[in-house]
């Protein structure tokens, strides 16, 4: 078998990575004879990177994952539904609405986004556990700005 037909060809793996991103695929596994490689995106990818890799060269061609990335099909991102100022607590002396580890359901208020003196309480609209807080208290946020990541498995 010629080198160009090798499934672990670097170019082909790059194409696969592009395809995974384009189609939102999180995992692809390739096998050829006694060698195999698994390409995984997000947090699971970081774990996969330390799994036994049959072909070190091919594995080295996979981009390094972001160490702190919390991603995957089970992670939902709560975004700002409007422009305004992000408040993580109902008033300056109160505890934050949610913290990392807080369980939320669809109706749980996770923050306030204030604009034009309208204090909009933002519900989670998803069930799970908060795994990351992405905005700081009193930060100016635009429409669509990621605010929280929620793990929907728990």
């Amino acid at each position: 078998m010629g080198k160009s037909e090798d499934v672990f060809n670097v170019e082909r793996i790059r194409q696969l990575i592009d395809l995974m991103e384009e189609r939102g695929l999180n995992e692809v596994e390739l096998k050829q004879e006694d060698q195999h490689i698994r390409l995984v995106r997000g947090l699971a990818m970081a774990q996969a990177a330390v799994a036994p890799a049959a072909v070190p060269v091919a594995a080295a061609s996979v981009p390094e994952p972001t160490p702190q990335a919390i991603d995957g099909p089970h992670i939902k991102v709560i975004t700002a539904p409007m422009v305004g100022t992000f408040y993580d607590k109902p008033n300056p002396n109160a505890e934050p609405f949610v913290k990392i580890g807080s369980k939320v359901s669809a109706d749980t208020v996770v923050c306030i986004v204030e604009a034009m003196k309208v204090f909009n309480e933002i519900p989670a609209e998803v069930k799970g556990t908060v795994v990351e807080v992405l905005a700081g208290n009193e930060e100016a946020v635009d429409f669509g700005r990621p605010l929280f990541k929620v793990d929907t498995r728990s």
Partner: peptide, 10 residues
């Protein structure tokens, strides 16, 4: 659209 909700004060 929630983008318009803050206009309620105005």
């Amino acid at each position: 659209s929630p983008q318009h909700w803050s206009q309620l004060a105005l």
